[in-house]
C-alpha cells in the first residue's frame, strides 16, 4: 500500500497488520505496515495514533527498532475499547495510522554518558527502541543499565529478549517483580530499589524512565538520591492525547502539550508540575 503523505495531520492512513504476537496475558505486539513505500521513520520514544474502524483512536508508543522504518511495531495492553479491539486484530486487517508524533528519548544527547533505563510494566515498550538504538551504537555510550519492574514473572514483557540482554557483557539488565513463586530466582520489590545496585557514574549519567506516574516519581527520587542531575532525568508522560498535534488541548500539563512537547520530558522542565495534584 503506497499513499502520499497526508496534508491533514488528523487524517489516518490505512495500513495492514503484518504480524500479531501475544506477549503476556493481556498484552500483544502488532507489527504494522508503514503506509508509505519509503517507510515511516521514527525516533525512539515517539508514538503513533492508531484507529480501529468504527471503534476509535488511541496513542500507542512505538516499541520496535527505529532502524527499520518499514515496520511500525506497537505493544498494546488490552484495557479499553480501542486497545482491546487493536489487540484482537488479525494479520491482514487494516487499521488507520497517523504519526509518528512527539519528542522521543534524547538518545543522541546521551552519547558519551552512562545510561540508565528504568521501566515499570508496559513502560518497557517505549524504552525498547531507545535500548535498540544504544546497543546498535554501543561503543558510543558508557555503562548501560536496564532496570525493569513488573507485577509477576508471568507479566514480563519481551521475555526472550530480556534473557538475551541479561547474557550480554556490555549491558546490565535487572528484572524485579512485585510478587513471585518459588521458581523465581530474581529480585522481588519495586523497580526503584534497583537504582543503588546499578553501576553508573551519577555525575555523567542520563536516565530514561517510563512507567506509571507514581513509579516515575519514586524513580526520580532514587536517581536524585544517587546524585543524578534533574536535567539528566527524562520521563515519558501520559496524558489524554486525542489529536497528537497540540490542537485539541486535552493533554495539557501546565504549559506543556504532552503530545508535541513530550511525551518524553526532562524532569527539570516538569519538576514543579509532577509533585502537584490534578495539574
Amino acid at each position: 500500500m503506497c499513499l502520499p503523505m497526508q496534508s491533514d495531520p488528523m487524517q489516518p492512513v490505512p495500513v495492514r497488520v503484518l504480524t500479531r504476537r501475544r506477549e503476556v496475558a493481556d498484552t500483544w505486539t502488532l507489527e504494522l505496515e508503514p503506509g508509505d513505500a519509503a517507510g515511516r521513520p521514527f525516533a525512539p520514544g515517539q508514538f503513533n495514533m492508531l484507529y480501529v474502524f468504527g471503534v476509535g483512536e488511541i496513542p500507542i508508543s512505538l516499541s520496535g527498532d527505529s532502524a527499520d522504518p518499514h515496520r511500525q511495531v506497537h505493544t498494546v495492553r488490552a484495557v479499553g475499547p480501542v486497545s482491546r479491539a487493536l489487540a484482537a486484530l488479525s494479520p491482514a486487517a487494516t487499521v488507520g495510522l497517523r504519526g509518528p508524533f512527539g519528542q522521543g528519548w534524547p538518545v543522541e544527547a546521551a552519547a558519551g554518558a552512562d545510561v540508565v533505563l528504568i521501566a515499570g510494566g508496559l513502560g518497557l515498550a517505549p524504552l525498547r527502541p531507545a535500548l535498540y538504538y544504544i546497543l546498535s551504537r554501543r561503543a558510543r555510550y558508557g555503562r548501560v543499565a536496564l532496570l525493569y519492574g513488573t507485577r509477576s514473572p508471568g507479566d514480563i514483557l519481551f521475555r526472550r529478549e530480556l534473557e538475551r540482554w541479561r547474557r550480554r557483557l556490555d549491558l546490565e539488565a535487572w528484572v524485579t517483580v512485585d510478587y513471585a513463586g518459588s521458581d523465581w530466582v530474581g529480585c522481588v520489590g519495586v523497580v526503584t530499589n534497583l537504582v543503588p545496585s546499578a553501576s553508573f557514574d551519577p555525575a555523567d549519567t542520563v536516565a530514561f524512565v517510563c512507567g506509571p506516574e507514581v513509579m516515575m516519581r519514586f524513580a526520580v527520587a532514587a536517581l536524585q538520591k544517587a546524585g543524578v542531575d534533574d536535567a539528566a532525568i527524562h520521563l515519558s508522560m501520559e496524558r489524554n492525547m486525542k489529536c497528537a498535534i497540540g490542537h485539541c488541548g486535552h493533554c495539557q500539563f501546565g504549559p506543556l502539550f504532552v503530545c508535541k512537547d513530550g511525551p518524553v520530558l526532562s524532569f527539570e522542565r516538569i519538576r514543579g508540575l509532577l509533585s502537584r495534584k490534578e495539574i
Binding site: Q11, V13, P14, Y51, F53, G54, A93, T94, V95
Partner: peptide, 12 residues
C-alpha cells in the same frame, strides 16, 4: 473524514 470498510480493507 469518513471511513469505508469492505472485508479487511479500509478507505478513508
Amino acid at each position: 473524514w469518513r471511513a469505508e470498510r469492505s472485508g479487511d480493507d479500509m478507505r478513508i
